[in-house]
């Protein structure tokens, strides 16, 4: 049997609480990160991703404590991102128990940081997060929660980040994020087919069928979602059953 596709619940964390908004607005509280992570672990999540959405210097200590608490109780891979800018930031998160580190803005302002991080810690722990938006007939990289254009072509950027030593890409459609209308499948497939490293699809999941489409039509290796799981709409096990019914190889 082949490698299983992965379901990754995502915890957006703001000052020690899980939150979720629509297009980065209308933030709702979704609980204590440790409790939420434990619940997903028990439901059979394949990994957990935690993003520090405020990523302030003051908030960093709280995030490290949260990572430490989760890593002591949840024994599946844990990715941590948000405000990671230096090798010291990465080391602090790894020492707290993170397995993979998401790098987003710092990769854009200083691509060599991805290479340095990959050489220092290994490609397997460097996840480059790409926030892309459709512009005319292609996709471009945006920063600052989708507000600031960079003019960088998303597919070219993905190929470049692979060359710089990314071990995996976390691809978010800024057009779809929080909209519950499904992944941007054309974007997901364009990037997944262009690189030889795994791609996690993110942004827009509103139904279980959206998850299956991400793999079958978007060619994603993993699918990430937040709100459909946070508020009890579906469990991870529901999602796995549905994806398995669409002939997707899943871990039980």
């Amino acid at each position: 049997m082949p490698l299983a596709k992965r379901i990754i619940p995502c915890l957006d964390v703001d000052r020690g609480r899980v939150v979720k908004g629509v297009n980065f607005l209308n933030i709702r509280d979704a609980g204590d990160p440790v409790e939420v992570a434990k619940r997903y672990n028990e439901q059979g999540a394949d990994e957990i991703t935690m993003l520090d959405i405020t990523a302030t210097h003051e908030g960093r200590g709280t995030m490290i404590e949260t990572v430490r608490a989760i890593a002591g109780q949840v024994f599946i891979p844990l990715t941590v991102g948000g405000g990671i800018r230096t090798v010291a930031d990465i080391r602090a998160m790894l020492n707290a128990g993170a397995d993979k580190i998401g790098i987003n803005s710092a990769a854009i302002s200083n691509p060599a940081f991805v290479r340095e991080a990959s050489e220092r810690f290994g490609a397997q722990c460097i996840v480059v997060a790409i926030d892309a938006k459709r512009v005319d007939d292609h996709w471009e990289i945006f920063t600052h929660g989708g507000r600031k254009a960079t003019g960088i072509n998303a597919v070219e950027w993905a190929i470049r980040m692979q060359a710089y030593g990314a071990g995996e890409l976390l691809l978010t459609s800024m057009d779809r994020d929080g909209a519950k209308s499904g992944f941007d499948l054309a974007l997901t497939r364009a990037i997944s087919d262009a690189v030889s490293i795994p791609v996690i699809a993110s942004g827009g999941v509103g139904t279980l069928e959206h998850l299956a489409e991400g793999v079958n039509l978007g060619h994603a290796d993993a699918v990430l979602a937040a709100s459909i799981f946070h508020f009890g709409e579906f469990t991870i096990a529901d999602a796995k059953r549905h994806m398995a019914s669409r002939n997707i190889e899943m871990r039980r």
Binding site: A4, A123, E168, D193, I197, P198, H219, D221
Partner: peptide, 21 residues
């Protein structure tokens, strides 16, 4: 190997990352 194909007949992703039997 670089030439092994996955379920979409695309080259298999490397690293081998995830849950396998």
């Amino acid at each position: 190997p670089k030439d092994a194909l996955d379920v979409h007949d695309l080259p298999m992703k490397v690293p081998h990352m995830g849950w396998n039997n």
